[in-house]
Design a binder for these strands. Structure first.
Length: 105
DNA sequence: TGCTTGACAGAAG
DNA sequence: CCTTCTGCCAAGC
């Protein structure tokens, strides 16, 4: 992956996350696939964590494929709960009800 | 240059 | 449902 591609990937990830509606969530794998690199799901999380400005985006609406929230970040659960997202467990989001898939928009 | 780590995903126990 | 292992890739040491 060239620096140019890395820039595009980061841009695509941030763009998609910025479009997640309130009360909805999406997964790292989905974002990575939409961004063009299906196997870079981990890069999505890394990008959101290390890219300055990611905090300004609704990154709390991004969970893993199992609906688990980010470990060590309890605030995410509070934020999601405040938007009406229901949990199957303390840190497990009910994806069947809140999963959102980007639509190019 | 080479090993370890991680906001992951999927399969297995 | 929860924990652990493997495959994945870029970043940190």
């Amino acid at each position: 992956m060239t620096p140019e591609e890395a820039r595009q990937f980061r841009d695509a990830v941030l763009s998609i996350v910025a479009q997640i509606p309130s009360g909805r969530v999406t997964t790292y794998g989905t974002i990575a696939t939409l961004a063009g690199w299906p196997s870079h799901s981990r890069m999505v999380g890394r990008t959101l964590r290390y890219t300055p400005g990611a905090e300004l985006l609704p990154c709390h609406r991004v969970v893993n494929a199992a609906g688990r929230t980010a470990p060590g970040w309890g605030g995410q659960i509070v934020l999601l709960h405040a938007e009406g997202v229901q949990f199957k467990r303390h840190n497990i989001v009910d994806l069947s009800k809140h999963l959102w898939v980007p639509e190019e928009e």
